[in-house]
Design a protein around this nucleic acid. Structure first.
Lengths: 337, 337
DNA sequence: TTGAAAGCGCTAACAG
DNA sequence: CTGTTAGCGCTTTCAA
């Protein structure tokens, strides 16, 4: 009960494997293979339930019709939302997705790229971690389509799709300032990546533009990978030691969720006197009582742009036209609640 | 700047490709290749940054070191949580994951299996939709490792990892009954899959065991794929038309989330007089005011069992020992809040 | 200890 | 219009 090969089909149909191959690849017309033969071969393909071996095809043609997706953590709703939409669109064009999570670890990220390389994926979609610039450059040098997203790698000539994190954070901070907040805490993660940095800059500049001096006491960086408890401890310290904080801005979705739990535990009520803003919209912020205002990232559009760029590069002639780099910066939307 | 092949290495090292291959595959010892040669070849491999072409290797050996993961929707936190953990464990054993979402569509699921088949994935992890029994049987007949999870396919000799949905729903319902609830609504999805059916049976039996006659008016099945608005309308109808409902049990995580929004919009307060229970634990239920009791599925364990079974089958000798089928039923945990 | 060579299944010149 | 054939890069048997 082995899977039939093109040879079996050819033998059964009493034609050469070339003929079968042409029919398989829609080149029957061009090769002017007779209707009869086409029909006969197709019937036999049906009958045998024959599917060409993609592995062999890949070895021969050099492309695998697979796209490698490298994210920080596939279980983060932001990434899984993107993954879902990318999968959908890629699938319609005959591409499959292989995914992997880096956990923000450059070593792991590098290994993943190696793995994908040896597996000959046709293109890469990467939420980069600092330290893989070289590996990405290598990919580019090999003329393999790459799109990075979520974070930008400054100084690199690579396609990217990001949101305007500076403006996003700026507008959220300004909102708080206009609400009369004077001591706006900023909770972030300690990784040095572009989008996180820009969010902080947005926060900082909004303060400065409104004559508020950023107070280091109001700033906390939670180490990446901290457990729920560790995060809790740090957050509580922040609020306990700085009772005059009258608003908090969380720079990531998961920190905001942790923060909300923490505030709840502390019986700190969120109201006119104490505001909270989060990054990324999720059900949890809408459903919270009171609902939490957020800086919303257009997930759908991000995914769409990414896949458009990838498919476009994939379909263009590899050798000749040196394609323009796509630099997409999408706006965020502040949702007041 | 083409990727170097084993041939390039062999030439440079002035040995045959066989020798390189043996060294690559850790068979150098067994083949008693001299230390010198090993060293020299390995240095050159280093220098060239050579990685064997997995595609070629796959074609030759017949395995791709890839596992196909077929779920309903990768962006559902339940599935992405499982995906994350499976990925992690598989990665450590040198396996990669290709994922795809079926959207509960048997036709799409079948296509996905075909796709994975032609790509020669080594094993399948599937959250099955009704109607693909035959395809799975085919896989089994070809002796390809398969584990299904989340839902069971009754009457099939296939490894599965599920939770005891009957008991899960039973205990949750009983909890509500013991709280004195008389009119417990049940909100579910209209797909006819094993785990959804069992949840309903659990609910029903709990009622019957406590001399409560299930009232069809308290039952609603939301069509799968309904939009947020459509769901809203249906839910509102339910509550408006049945004002004596004093508790609701949502049979899936996303329905519960929709339901909570809906109740909020209706200004229906959740308190002693009106209870809510959801299936699957998520941040959103913990953070809700008041917090929502849930039937928790042990995601970590589910993922662990799945990957254990898969890796175990993958490592056993294919031809000889006909392995026992693994039937794992994990308990759910009712979390009262 | 190492090398030569067959072949995994398929595509695509090239030859009729 | 269709067939022959040379690989794609690798593993593995058989020989030396």
């Amino acid at each position: 009960m082995k899977a039939p090969s093109i040879k079996d089909i050819a033998k059964k149909a009493e034609v050469s494997i070339t003929t079968v191959s042409f029919i398989l690849n829609g080149k029957a017309e061009k090769m002017r293979i007779s209707k009869d033969v086409i029909k006969r071969v197709q019937d036999i393909i049906q009958e045998f339930g024959f599917k060409p071996n993609q592995v062999a095809r890949s070895l021969r043609t050099g492309n695998t019709k697979t796209i490698g997706l490298i994210v920080e953590d596939i279980s983060n709703p932001f990434f899984s939302g993107i993954a879902r939409r990318i999968e959908d669109k890629a699938y319609k064009k005959g591409y499959k997705i292989s995914y992997s999570s880096t956990e923000n670890d450059a070593v792991k990220a590098r290994e993943l790229i190696e793995m994908f390389k040896s597996r000959k994926v046709d293109a890469y979609i990467i939420a980069p971690v600092p330290g893989i610039e070289e590996d990405i450059k290598q990919l580019l040098a090999d003329k393999i389509p790459v799109v990075i997203f979520d974070r930008n790698l400054p100084e690199m000539d690579v396609n990217y799709v990001v949101v305007d994190n500076f403006k996003g954070a700026y507008s959220a901070t300004e909102y708080l300032i206009k609400k009369g907040k004077k001591n706006i805490a900023y909770v972030t993660v300690d990784v040095d990546v572009d989008q996180i940095n820009n969010r902080f800059l947005g926060y900082e500049h909004a303060l400065l533009d409104h004559q508020i001096k950023p107070d280091p006491k109001n700033l906390i960086k939670i180490p990446f990978g901290s457990s729920e408890e560790e995060t809790n401890v740090l957050l509580k310290d922040l609020f306990v030691n700085n009772p005059d904080i009258d608003a908090v801005f969380f720079s990531t979705n998961y920190l905001a969720v942790r923060g909300l739990f923490c505030l709840k535990e502390m019986n700190k009520t969120i109201d006119q006197d104490f505001n909270v803003v989060a990054y990324d919209d999720q059900d949890v912020f809408r459903i919270h009582t009171p609902p939490i205002s957020v800086v919303d990232q257009p997930v759908e559009e991000i995914a769409e742009k990414i896949i458009d760029i990838i498919l476009n590069e994939l379909s263009r002639d590899k050798n000749l036209p040196k394609s323009e780099i796509s630099k997409v910066v999408l706006p965020t939307k502040f949702i007041e609640r």
